[in-house]
Design a protein around this nucleic acid. Structure first.
Lengths: 153, 153
DNA sequence: CTACAATCGGACATCACTATCCTGTAGATG
DNA sequence: CATCTACAGGATAGTGATGTCCGATTGTAG
């Protein structure tokens, strides 16, 4: 019913980056502070997202992370396949190693349509869409209230 | 996308017990062997299910666990609320401590209908229904094929 | 070139879940 | 009562996800 911390951080960070002006790298430190998550841990996650081609990173002054070109339309499913692993959409609810339509667990047929709906929702939600809805101010990206006024584009 | 081991074992064990003749206690050892799960760990889980009123337990000879009267119609949701905790249906996908309709995370409104579908499915699935479908032989309750030879010397 | 800022990445620490061990206790049987 | 059996439950260990630390490396600016 809930994602792993790693996935949560990844999604939050990516949405936050997507709310920032395009092309301008965002500091890991700033993202961590904004989201109220451990910065060293977040850095590892962002590095992974870099290796998987979602982000660009820049060292030195004016460094930071930014969304790679064209990655604003990345879906949540693509993100979760990275953070939860490629078996994210495959694994059996009861943990059976083999659970196909032929050799199904008792929940397989009940779960199938639900899974389909989840995947549809995750495929449909893109980073730029989510970033837009955050920028309307109607949604919260993190628990910690923003102590400083974030820049509006 | 997948339940905790504890929940998996609980659901599997309860379905298995529900497939056995009513009123006759089933040995923890037999359940563990049938499911291919560690028996000592399963015992803890079954004890929890006893305390929560789903199971009766009997010590000594002819002992074991059986479904409490009327508990054959228990839904999966009731089971998971025990094994995953009462916040199972409440928690935010992004892990926010507060995420209501008023203070929503960016995924809240997308997730709501999906969550509704999940809960409907879990509420609808009862132990006796699942036990019945297992008894048809079309579904597997565990990975390990039941060769059913207790080759003890 | 030099100094500094920021990521990179390996090593280590922590915590919750998972799993095991062992002793105690209760029930059944003769 | 004696004894076997099976659950009860506290203590303990393994494991993977999570979180922290610190030095190495790379890029920018002066």
């Amino acid at each position: 019913m809930v994602l792993s911390r790693t996935s949560q951080y990844a999604v939050q960070a990516l949405i936050y980056i997507a709310t920032q002006p395009r092309g301008e790298p965002v500091l890991n430190r700033d993202i961590a502070e904004r989201l109220g998550v451990p910065s060293a841990y977040l850095a590892k996650i962002l590095q992974t997202l870099c290796k998987q081609g979602l982000l660009d990173s820049f060292r030195g002054r004016l460094g930071g992370f930014r969304l790679k070109d064209g990655m604003h339309s990345t879906s949540l499913l693509q993100v979760l396949l990275i953070t939860e692993g490629p078996q994210f959409t495959e694994s059996c609810v009861l943990g059976l190693k083999v659970c196909s339509d032929e050799t199904a667990c008792p929940l397989h047929n009940e779960w199938a349509p639900v899974k389909k709906k989840i995947i549809a929702m995750l495929t449909q939600s893109t980073l730029e869409d989510l970033a837009k809805s955050v920028l309307t101010g109607k949604y919260r990206l993190a628990d910690i209230p923003v102590s400083f006024v974030s820049a509006l584009p």
